[in-house]
Design a binder for these strands. Structure first.
Length: 155
DNA sequence: TCCGCCGACTCGT
DNA sequence: ACGAGTCGGCGGA
C-alpha cells in the first residue's frame, strides 16, 4: 500500500538538464522542493517558464530566479539559506561574513549550507571561504564551474 | 617575508 | 561528536 501521509505533495513538475557531465534536476509542485545534481537524469519531462530560465542560466545568461521554495528545515538552516538568497548573481561572500551577520560561527554556516536541498537556485555556491573556495556537496569542480559560469574568475 | 601545516576555538545538528 | 571555517603560531624556503 502506498502511504497517504505524504501530505498530498505529489510532484507536479520535474525536469533534468545536462550540464558539465552531470544532470541538474528540479522537482516540486506549486513550489520548488528539491534541486540537485546526479549522474543520471532523474526526470524525463520538462515544463514551463522555469525550465527556460534554468536553461538560460546554464548557458551563462544572467538570470535571477524569483521563486517560492518549500523548505521544511530547522529554523537556523532556513535563516542561513534565506541570507544566501540575497547574494546577487556573480557575487560571492565568505562563511565568516555571513556568520557575523547571524551572530554565529563560520562552521555553523558551512554545516547549514551542506543541507541546501535546492542547490543553484539557492546559490550556496556563492559562499566561499576566506582563504579559498571552500567546499561543495557535489564537489569543488562543480562549484568552480558555477562560479565561472557567473563570471567569477578568481579560481 | 611568504607559504603551508597544526592546534584551538566555534556552534547547530 | 562532527563539519562546505577561521585565526594565530611556528618552521622551512
Amino acid at each position: 500500500m502506498e502511504s497517504e501521509k505524504n501530505k498530498s505533495n505529489k510532484t507536479q513538475f520535474g525536469f533534468s538538464i545536462h550540464w558539465e557531465g552531470l544532470y541538474f534536476n528540479v522537482e516540486g509542485d506549486k513550489k520548488i522542493r528539491k534541486a540537485f545534481f546526479s549522474k543520471e537524469p532523474f526526470f524525463s519531462y520538462k515544463t514551463s517558464a522555469l525550465t527556460e530560465k534554468i536553461e538560460k542560466y546554464f548557458k551563462g545568461e544572467k538570470v535571477n530566479f524569483k521563486l517560492k521554495f518549500d523548505l521544511e528545515l530547522p529554523r537556523f538552516t532556513k535563516k542561513v539559506l534565506e541570507k544566501v538568497l540575497e547574494i546577487p548573481y556573480g557575487k560571492t561572500r565568505n562563511y565568516g561574513e555571513i556568520a557575523e551577520e547571524l551572530q554565529t560561527s563560520p562552521r555553523a554556516i558551512g554545516q547549514a549550507l551542506a543541507k541546501n536541498p535546492i542547490v543553484v537556485l539557492i546559490p550556496c555556491h556563492r559562499v566561499i571561504s576566506k582563504s579559498g573556495i571552500g567546499g561543495y556537496s557535489y564537489g569543488v569542480r562543480i562549484k568552480k564551474a558555477l562560479l565561472r559560469l557567473e563570471g567569477v574568475d578568481i579560481f
